[in-house]
Structures are given as structure tokens and as C-alpha cells.
Design a binder for these strands. Structure first.
Lengths: 211, 211
DNA sequence: TGAAACTGTTAAGTTTCCGTTAAGTTTAAG
DNA sequence: CTTAAACTTAACGGAAACTTAACAGTTTCA
């Protein structure tokens, strides 16, 4: 009853509904999912035990427990068994969806169409970069580079890594195209926007330390 | 009232209790925390607005909202504003602690392995070393040396051993390159960071004794 | 249609700075 | 006190990064 209505309510997602931990295990072997909704239901211990097994196997897919029990001990136990969240029956579908959004956001970390980190934000719609109040349009390649860097602040990408991500495959020929693009970006926003680590690569730093 | 009792209840953690978003911002600039408990309290919009600002600044510390309001819309809004969890007043301290455990656990699974020992941590992604609060970027060679030492705290490596690990094979020619690199590291973090054992080699000590 | 503006790349010249060497100074052990 | 090890500093060569210009291919628009 609840399974069917949920499947309908969550039609903006791809839902696979299985009725016991055995079927769940089988399905998880075949595909990977972004979220597990676990109804503790009636068979008292099996749900939590299954959750513990999951975690022990190293499967870290977020788990949202749905249950009718509301004693504090049960909730605490559920969370400590490896659940990520807890929802009490009866619940409103809107709240379930909100919690799903939270867990999904956590995984992909990008719900907003605008990519933002600190005082930098990229708008894919207009190919625009804002940084420290300044806003400029970027060419496609330059935008790609900035997107990679800002989506992974603090991570250093070598010239060849950036080439590979932008052009699909690593160009064997050595080229300084990336350097030139970075140069034009820096001319618009100031040299500090992209930090070079000599011999390693380029990064959009998480924290900026005094040079 | 609630702040004080919470501070007492959570005595197994290091708690910093501030009374408004202004103070919170100041504190977050100084130190980094594992979790933020946000009491939405009375001033209706300020709490959520502050949360949104936090996220826009790229501060991704988990946020657990505590509130008396229980309408579904409010909860949904809170979660969508960037909160990671939601707890309704009144609540049992045990449940709060369980949820804190969940969020803390979540934080640990980081994508990049950070090498840590004591108050020193190396981030390969940024080629950065943090030690006693200070954070600096290191050159490739210097980073290599620190990595060897911190991954094996207390082990003493001779100059030639370090050379061999860094350059692939032992350079027969005697060189003081390692010494110079260690010197630059010490200049940045203080001489104590690397301990020399005369005639044997260098180490990042497990325990530090007053000289 | 054709000139102007823009983009992506190559290429060459210039600058920066990392890693090393080398020489001088200080420290600690015997 | 003697001496080797460790520390410090300066200097240099060269690779890495930066800058600039030029060129071909596109797009824009009069």
C-alpha cells in the first residue's frame, strides 16, 4: 500500500521497489542507486540488521529510514546503525521529498544550476563568471576550465589533465593552449584567481594563503 | 537557557556557543568546526537567511537545525536552504547525540586522502601542509619529504634514505639537497617540526619532549 | 557579400622560481 | 679542543610558466 503510493509520488525519480532485504541485496548487486528508503515495518530486527550488513560491506549509499515506531531509543538505534535520516509515519510527501533533496544534494553537491564557490560563481546559461564583484563573459574553453577548477576547489589539475577533460582525449602533442586560456581568464579577473603550483598544475584554491 | 543546558549535555564535544549570526560569522572566520547547531528561535527569517549565506560562501559544514516550529513547510524550507538535518523542540539529548554522530560520520568519508598525524596534516590535492594552525603550500620535493616523515611518525630517516625514496635510487654523489629542503620547511613552520638525531637522520616525532 | 570582431591554437620570446650546488657558520659529541 | 654533522645563506642553471603576436576558422552585421 505505502510502497505503491510512494512509487507514484516520487515519479520524478527512478524508483525500484523491493519487498524484502533478499530482493534488495539482489538489486543492489545489479545496479547502483543514489538513495535507499528503508521501511522498518513489522519484522522487527531484520531491517536494522540488513542496514548494518550493508554498511559492513562498504556500501555507503545514503539510507533514509521510514518507520512507525517513535520511541527515542529506536530512533537512536537506527541512526547509529548507519542510517542517514529518519522519517516517522505518517509523513507528508513534501517532507520526504525535501529530505531526498538533501541527501541527493549531498551526493552530487550541485542542485543549483549556478556553480558557486566562495565569491566565485559560474552561470552555464550565459557562460558568465563572477568573481569578487566583477562579471565577465567567458569563451567556451575558458568557461570549461573555470568550471572544472571551481567545481573542485583546492584540487590541482595538471595541464594535460585539463586538456584531457576539455578535449575528450589526451592530446599527445604538447600544446600550451591551456596556458593561454588561463592567461586570458587572469587578464579579466586578476592573476590570483587561478593559482599555479609549479610542477604540478593549476587550482582554484579553497583557502588563499599569503604568497 | 537551552544553550547553556546543551553546552553541558554535549560536554564530550568542544562546543562554542554564540548568540547571533554576527558572532557566528566571526567565530567561523577564526576556527573551523565539524558541525553547526542552528536554533531558528524567534527572529523569524534571520536564521535561514544566515544559513543560505553560509552555503553561498562555500562553507559546507553540516548544519543541524533546532526549532520549535513544526509545520511541514518550515521543515521543507529549512532543508532546502542547505540544512542537513532537522530536530524539533522539545527533544531528548540522546537523539541529538545520535544525529550528531551521523553527521560526524558522514564528514569522514572524504574524497581525497588527507594524511594526518597529530596536529599535522598533508593534503595531496593542494600540496599543502597544516601544522599547529599554520597552513602553507609546499614545493614538490618538500612535500615528498614531509609525506614520508608524517606517514611514519617516529621513524628516523637518514639523508640518503630520503634521497633514495624521492629520487628513485640512491644518488652516489653526496648532496645536501635534502638538508636545504628541510630548512625551507622549518623556516615556514618552525624548527621543531622536524627533529634531527645527530648521526642518524630526521624524524617527525611521535611524542615531543621539551628540549 | 565582405569587413570587423571573436575564438582557438601555435609559436617564439621573456620572466619566474624551484632544485641544486657550494661555501661558510654553528652545533654537539668525544 | 677537535672534528664531523648539521644548519644557513647565496648563487646559478634550467625547466616551467607567462606573455605576446600572428594566423586560420567562425560568427556578426552592415
Amino acid at each position: 500500500m505505502i510502497g505503491q503510493s510512494l512509487q507514484k509520488a516520487l515519479k520524478s525519480h527512478v524508483v525500484n521497489w523491493v519487498k524484502d532485504s533478499f530482493a534488495a541485496e539482489h538489486t543492489l548487486n545489479l545496479e547502483t542507486y543514489d538513495l535507499i528508503l528503508l521501511d522498518l515495518g513489522l519484522p522487527k530486527r531484520s531491517g536494522l540488521e540488513y542496514l548494518v550488513q550493508l554498511r559492513e560491506k562498504g556500501i555507503m549509499i545514503p539510507v533514509l529510514i521510514i518507520t512507525a515506531r517513535d520511541s527515542i531509543e529506536d530512533r537512536v538505534k537506527g541512526l547509529d546503525c548507519g542510517a542517514d535520516d529518519y522519517l516517522l509515519k505518517p509523513f507528508a510527501v513534501e517532507e520526504l521529498e525535501a529530505r531526498i533533496r538533501v541527501l541527493a544534494r549531498r551526493k552530487q553537491d550541485r542542485t543549483h544550476p549556478i556553480i558557486t564557490y566562495g565569491d566565485a560563481s559560474l552561470d552555464p546559461a550565459t557562460h558568465t563568471l563572477s568573481y569578487q564583484g566583477r562579471t565577465e563573459r567567458l569563451s567556451v574553453k575558458a568557461f570549461n576550465i573555470m568550471q572544472i577548477l571551481i567545481e573542485n576547489p583546492g584540487v590541482i589539475y595538471s595541464r594535460s589533465q585539463l586538456e584531457e577533460k576539455i578535449y575528450g582525449w589526451s592530446d599527445e602533442v604538447e600544446s600550451n593552449a591551456v596556458e593561454v586560456h588561463i592567461h586570458t581568464i587572469r587578464r579579466k579577473f586578476g592573476a590570483e584567481i587561478i593559482v599555479n603550483v609549479r610542477g604540478v598544475g593549476y587550482t582554484f584554491p579553497k583557502v588563499r594563503v599569503n604568497s
